[in-house]
Amino acid sequence: MALFEARDLDCRRGGRDVFAGLSFSLAAGGALLLTGANGTGKSSLLRLMAGLLQPVGGAILWDDESIAEEPAAHAGRLHYLGHLEAVKPVLSAAENLRFWAALRGHSADIGAALEHFSLAALAEVPGRLLSAGQRRRLALARLLASPAELWLLDEPSVGLDHASVGKLAEAIAQHRAGGGRVVVATHTALDLPDAQPLALDDLPPPPLPELIW
């Protein structure tokens, strides 16, 4: 079974070391819960995992192959949900969702995905009329509209009501039951049974700049 892992990752942003020497491994069906104060690099780590950001040291591997080797293949097996929802104001909720699903080769059915996050009634409403929470739910519906082995979720529950947080936990549980893996960075309580915690606060501090320069 393929393993998703990182070895000795160094991350540097804007000339500043964010973290160094980070490692983890995540098996099929597993969940990784990133915790840490603001600025400890949770978002940066998720962007590294997605391949949007390159590490300055170490490597992220899928099945023993660096994700930097085959960025397109890696992009094909993941869903990344960042702080931005990628919802176009002039397209309807259904059009927004259908475009992203079709781009990943799944034009078939977005009804179930809309249904799961209680968006069926809003399908024809243009994006600009959706509330912040509804836009968030539409972004989450992308996860279900086309399958991907790896979900990378950055604060997925921000702006969601109680019921929707439950729906999100349910979607994640189903995803994991089917062998999918998920990495979540969150501050709020999210029901993730047997998630491996990864606390970015506990990492040794990055080397002082003097040592490098």
Partner: peptide
Amino acid sequence: YEDGSLEQLLLSPLP
């Protein structure tokens, strides 16, 4: 770029 579509585009299987 501002609404996040660009990063989704970058992470789509399309080159």
